[in-house]
Write a protein that binds this DNA or RNA. Structure first.
Lengths: 114, 114
DNA sequence: TTATCTACCTTGTATGACAAGGTACTCTAT
DNA sequence: ATAGAGTACCTTGTCATACAAGGTAGATAA
């Protein structure tokens, strides 16, 4: 497979899904940033710390998430995130939107397979 | 539902899926830009001409698509687009990637519903 | 011959993903 | 004690791109 544009494709495909994924992950797990980063890297939705930290700062500023500090059994303290009520509402909205968007895309793909 | 952030959500959710959608639409249909725009607006994947025209220029420059002019039965001539071989390969790559990404997202959503 | 519709395209702004670089705490091995 | 490795936090600068708004021009109908 041609690698020349793959990089671009991978980058672009991910855009905008990240915020949704982050909210989902926070909703489900008791989780701190560094672990979140690993999880989202595994899911191929994020590649860099420079994406996640500013995003979490923005979500904090917008009061979609809150956090508390907790000591680590080994290493520096960790910042654990939680959804606020507003964040939960946002997540619900995202879920509805995700269904709509993925149906749109799947429709366009299917048309192509006829 | 709170409209305050909905705008942002709608914008962000769409990012990066657009190129994929455009390639799919071109692959399936004999289509010119203005019609493509309507189709993608209906699918809620695009809102503005300022998104589609530069994107098609870029895809042309990258030789993923080619075009030919054809007269309209009423109005100015139309620019019809086609996939090149490279464009077809890109589309295949996008389709594989789409499956992967949407599975990732669906996995994160499901975890959240447990 | 003017207005309307269709179709093309460009410019300027804001946002955000990324790579790279940076701080500081804890533990282990010397 | 202290140097290094590992963990966890965060910032800065660059580039790409979605969008709104504005602009050009051909064809048809009043």
């Amino acid at each position: 497979m041609n690698r020349e544009y793959l990089t671009t494709i991978e980058k672009e495909m991910r855009k905008g899904l990240i915020e949704f994924a982050v909210l989902s992950v926070i909703a489900k797990n008791k989780i701190y940033t560094s672990d979140m980063l690993n999880l989202l890297k595994e899911a191929q939705l994020i590649t860099s710390e420079g994406t996640l930290y500013p995003l979490l700062s923005r979500l904090s500023r917008e009061e979609a998430v809150s956090y508390y500090w907790e000591e680590s059994p080994s290493g520096p303290p960790r910042k654990y995130y939680q959804l606020t009520n507003k964040g939960q509402t946002m997540l619900n909205t995202y879920q509805i939107l995700w269904i709509k968007i993925s149906q749109s895309i799947n429709f366009l793909i299917k048309k192509n397979e006829q």
